[in-house]
Design a protein around this nucleic acid. Structure first.
Lengths: 344, 344
DNA sequence: TTGAAAGCGCTAACAC
DNA sequence: GTGTTAGCGCTTTCAA
């Protein structure tokens, strides 16, 4: 049984010196054994390991990373909202990729609050994270840079023009365009857009895809059919209610899965109340669990959130590695989307 | 512009000493100003803060926590699978509660692998986390204890009999019982159980609820109707396929949302292929997004995953606080469930 | 191959 | 109110 568990022992965890004393060697030898690099006799190794096990010793990674040149093995990840399974997937991908270099993740949730985001960045920097993966929520670039200092940064899912950082995004403009074009081909004309405001770059790109598809079909964007107030499921539900009450709608384009999942129940309920109106199909960006159970016409612009997280983490570890100069040109990865007819 | 950003500056972050030199004071004064406790003249405060801003100084939390008695401000959270929105909610609750004491989260995903869980615990301990919230996945209690050392532990969602730790669980045995009883009252007799094996305590309790409800109705558990091989959506889908192929089933009890979401599409598809069979209602434990869109008879035993996370974190911060003795008796919180008819 | 000393950044304890 | 000293746990010199 490790000493630490013995009753009455005062609460001080064993240090290299405790191990050294117990093994009758120097602290330095303990360090060498534990790191596996230096030349150590196999006999020394055995003695030290025995004491390590006996005392229940564990290296203090914080003290270790105090020495210059030592890595903390910690990476900060700031996402907006983990409730959204999309970001959970991103996190999963990040974890996946970082595990390869044996780094751990400190998570922060900005909840979409730029001030909170900035505070988290500063906090993480103080905790000596080696770098940061950020899903930005619209904080001022200058403030973000200040909080970052010299921390390597990778932006995931959303770009930020003002920030000089590696970025992974999906080609949602193109995906949106293809999706809307598909609706147009099926004969739908009055296609509504439901999304977040222009600040959110993803929403903006998806709106552009919408515009371009309409433009290519010679249709002007009708402002009455555009609602850019959808911040979550709640506001999306309100938006579709308002839309259905005031406009004639042929089809609905939902710019993200929060919007889709907010809109669908409302829309389905509305159609039940108006059984002789034609079905209003939904085009959504991002998949969601159980989408296959939806009985309403639904088409999805999907992509691999996990791969996005993985790519972001890989960009970061590259940047952290010895090979890439800190000043190497920034990279932007654009991942493709897939259009899928979920239900028709 | 902070010095650190100036071109050509060698990459050493400013320390208290740099700030002290710049401000013409001692390092101790800088420390005092930054901590806000000690008596410092307002003039000193101003001078220091000016230099801090000028140099872009940020306290090194790792070095700080090296001093005895200083907290690292880090809490480890190990969950099995973040893809499951249920655990994402738990994490959200934990983050919520920890934010109040300005602590951050290091996350680890065990992916249901006990060895990995043990390694993560040891890793986190080495990183000086103050405590741990763990969703255990069945690792040996002795090994877990060894890895933990003297780290305060809170178990969330699943109990672990061998571990001496505060625990938050939900009353899923009782909830399951009520749910199954409700099915029995509606006249269903051959009710299948789909869940994980006995190792997983939640699954076990839910199975007990199933047993008790059947027992109270004078019905014996039929082993042919019990499948305890459901580890994820995939295996759950396989289980229901096998069940439908070999048994007559009146209703299905799914012991968690992975099972429910794995079973539902299969079941719905099967019923479409057998239109003259009676509808087989599903009773599931845990809610899931979009459940309201399911058109299949569905009843859910739900609870507040976020509250569970919050409670777990609160138990931990209590244990960490100065008020509670380390040896204070362990607490087990049992949160209630709600039975909800989602679709009939 | 092993050990001794020095220092990473910070702050508690003790001067003044 | 402010400064000096020492040491938290570890590892990089450098010496043996």
């Amino acid at each position: 049984m490790p000493m630490a568990e013995m009753a009455g022992t005062p609460h001080r965890r064993p240090t290299v010196y405790d191990v050294a004393t117990d093994a009758g060697v120097s602290a330095m030898s303990v360090s060498r054994v534990l790191n596996g690099n230096g030349n150590v006799s196999s006999q020394m190794r055995r003695r030290v390991m025995r004491s390590v096990a006996k005392l229940g010793y564990r290296r203090n990674e914080n003290a270790r990373s105090l020495r210059p040149g030592q890595r903390s093995g910690l990476v900060g990840v700031i996402i907006t909202n983990i409730e959204n399974p999309y970001y959970a997937q991103v996190l999963l991908g990040i974890e996946d990729a970082l595990d390869a270099s044996d780094r751990r993740i400190v998570v922060g949730l900005s909840h979409g609050d730029p001030d909170r985001e900035t505070r988290l960045i500063a906090d993480f920097a103080g905790r000596q994270v080696e770098g940061l993966v950020l899903v930005p929520c619209g904080a001022d670039a200058a403030e973000t840079s200040r909080a970052l200092g010299d921390l390597p940064l990778v932006l995931a899912s959303r770009a930020h023009p003002g920030l000089d950082a590696d970025t992974v995004v999906i080609d949602d403009r193109e995906g949106s365009q293809r999706g809307v074009a598909a609706l147009l081909e099926e004969g739908y004309r009055r296609i509504a857009f439901l999304g977040n405001d222009e600040q959110v770059s993803t929403s903006q790109r998806r709106f552009e895809g919408y515009q371009q598809a309409l433009g290519a079909a010679g249709i002007a964007v009708e402002t009455g059919l555009v609602r850019r107030t959808c911040r979550d499921q709640q506001s999306s539900a309100e938006a579709i209610r308002g839309l259905l009450a005031t406009e004639t709608v042929d089809a609905v384009f939902c710019a993200n899965n929060q919007v889709t999942t907010g809109v669908l129940p409302e829309l389905v309920a509305w159609q039940r109340r108006h059984p002789n109106r034609a079905l209003i199909p939904v085009l959504g960006v991002d998949g969601f669990r159980m989408s296959s159970l939806v009985e309403h016409p639904l088409m999805l612009v999907e992509h691999d959130a996990r791969a996005l997280g993985r790519s972001a983490a890989e960009l970061l570890t590259n940047r952290l590695g010895p090979k890439v100069a800190e000043s190497a040109p920034r990279v932007t990865l654009t991942l493709p989307t897939v259009l899928r007819q979920e239900h028709s």
